[in-house]
């Protein structure tokens, strides 16, 4: 989980950076430039395949864990008080992951899939910037995207430092740094993502 998680985290960085280009307010020019590169470059396509593989691995691995972990305790406690020893989100990674996955399906259906279909059939790309502007006119969609980012926030809040622990990277000298970086990352990346639909909705991007 940790390895695939960190791999997916690295993707989030790229994705967030490129998307943040919308705020150059140059009519999406910079954004489109990079989006075009990402959409058409062969090497990137290979990496993209890897990304999907990573995502699927992350999901399958997660489901396996969930099943094994559920089977490991066939009789539940009549009275349990886990709030005394752990955070709710660390215990809810499967639920948060599922929420993110649902969001992801919608998100891919909104942008990535139509664009890819277009590219494969016509060799042309869609104007993603314009698609975003259109899509984020709708308040429910914006709220849905915010909810997706919110789930991502909690998922990352545990997942980031947990990945380090799983890989054995735990040292009293660096633990604090990892923790701070984890918190910062979990806030910044989902916030950046969430601000996109919001700023589009309020027409702050043009």
């Amino acid at each position: 989980m940790g390895l695939t998680g960190l791999f997916l985290i690295s993707f989030l960085v790229v994705h967030a950076s490129i998307n943040a280009c919308i705020w150059f307010n140059d009519g999406g020019e910079t954004f489109t430039f990079y989006a075009h590169f990402m959409g058409t470059n062969t090497i990137v396509h290979f990496i993209e395949a890897g990304l999907f593989a990573g995502l699927i691995l992350h999901i399958v691995d997660g489901l396996l864990l969930w099943k094994q972990n559920r089977d490991a305790r066939p009789v539940q406690y009549a009275y349990n008080n886990p709030g005394k020893n752990s955070t709710w989100y660390s215990r809810s990674m499967a639920v948060l992951g599922t929420l993110i996955l649902l969001f992801l399906v919608i998100h891919l259906y909104d942008f990535w899939a139509p664009n890819r279909v277009e590219y494969v059939t016509t060799g042309e790309e869609k104007d993603l910037f314009q698609m975003m502007q259109e899509r984020f006119e709708s308040l429910p969609i914006v709220l849905l995207y915010c909810a997706g980012c919110f789930s991502l926030f909690w998922h990352l809040l545990h997942g980031f430092k947990s990945a380090f622990q799983s890989l054995g990277l735990n040292h009293s000298k660096y633990n604090k740094a990892v923790e701070v970086a984890g918190i910062a990352f979990s806030i910044i990346v989902p916030a950046v993502f969430a601000l996109m639909p919001i700023s589009m909705y309020f027409h702050l991007v043009h």
Partner: peptide
Amino acid sequence: GNCTNTGACEVECPKGISLE
């Protein structure tokens, strides 16, 4: 089951065995 790093064990361990 598998470890998902919730850290509950370390908190409840009567001997304070560390997650490290």
